[in-house]
Design a protein around this nucleic acid. Structure first.
Lengths: 189, 189
DNA sequence: TGCGAAACGGAGGATACCTCCGTATCTTTT
DNA sequence: AAAAGATACGGAGGTATCCTCCGTTTCGCA
């Protein structure tokens, strides 16, 4: 969100730079991993390093911002699948798409974890949004009987993350492992 | 292993320094994470930075060496549980102990992953040992019918790792998530 | 158009990495 | 036991990246 929270709108140049930085950071992270020198990101965006640090005081702040886009699209996906599929199938489909999209974003899963563990404010917002979306899909799956009732939203998110990390460099195994996991979530033991 | 592979034994001072470095690295990783400055490790061990780099040319090499100890004890644990428990239960017990011990070693799970992905030689040795141990336990569980036959050793290791990373900072959820996972490995769908 | 606020940029101090080579220590030989 | 040769040590210093600080520039409002 390129406006200072609740205050007057950003100046035009500031907003422009913020957006260019975000876009270039996303590209740079994908190309060179999340440890790419921040000076490179600044150069790609055509701004000074000082400007980068003003907008994103830490590396994690920049990673969070990039990450936020992905959360948004996962949230949208959850609602979309909820409408498109029968209640018993949407959760599995969403988890599949989560894990697949994670595979394309190298290193960002570790960032996600760092963010989760840090209880950051940025994450808190994403957190609520994604919990709400996944909560909806999960509840329907449980009503439909395809997921046992004692599974929580946190469980789903955590397991998704776990699987993403594990198969980051072994995408061919992702499907099998996810299906084991889904079986586990289904069975009433 | 503080002897140069297959060649003449290390000089006494070299061996001493190697061992001190390893011990201090283990401590420093636990206290400050695996990103602790290597100069600190060298200082703690009472050697120069050059000595550290001679024994461990990269950070990963040092992490691998520390990690190796843990693999050894997990391998031992697998054989131990195989003897102590009925065949259907040893695998679950081993996975439980893996995940629990991982929780105590912050950051090292990420190292494990880096090592796995790198196909390093050091890992290759550990790899064989642990695959053999887990393979034994897994095969018995499959014979006993508590694990479906299409689960592989890689699956078990990968899932273990995933869970360890995911619950590194949420140990209270570890048990539940693992039990979901085990249910998934058991059910024939 | 002019002025104050906001943002920019990059120099530079600090930290960490890692190599290189003169010095010190150990081991073997006589 | 002493010397020679092999091996290992240590840390100075070049390089890379981080991140702050502040003089300069740009923007927006009146």
């Amino acid at each position: 969100m390129p406006t200072s929270a609740g205050e007057r709108p950003m100046r035009a140049d500031a907003r422009r730079n913020y957006e260019r930085l975000l876009a270039e950071a996303k590209g740079a992270f994908l190309e060179h991993g999340v440890d790419v020198p921040l000076e490179d990101v600044a150069r790609r965006a055509g701004v000074g390093i000082g400007t980068l640090y003003r907008h994103f005081p830490t590396r994690l702040a920049l990673q969070e911002a990039v990450y936020r886009d992905q959360v948004d699209s996962l949230v949208a996906k959850a609602y979309e699948l909820d409408e498109a599929l029968p209640p018993g199938e949407a959760l599995a489909a969403w988890m599949r798409s989560f894990v697949e999209s994670a595979a394309a974003r190298r290193g960002l899963m570790q960032t996600l974890k760092a963010v989760i563990d840090k209880h950051s404010e940025v994450f808190a917002r994403c957190h609520d949004e994604i919990r709400e979306a996944v909560g909806l899909v999960l509840a329907r799956a449980q009503e439909a009987g395809t997921v046992r009732p004692d599974v929580t939203v946190s469980d789903v998110l955590r397991l998704n993350h776990a699987l993403s990390v594990a198969t980051e460099h072994a995408p061919q195994d992702t499907g099998r492992l996810l299906s084991f996991l889904l079986d586990g979530l289904r069975s009433q033991s």
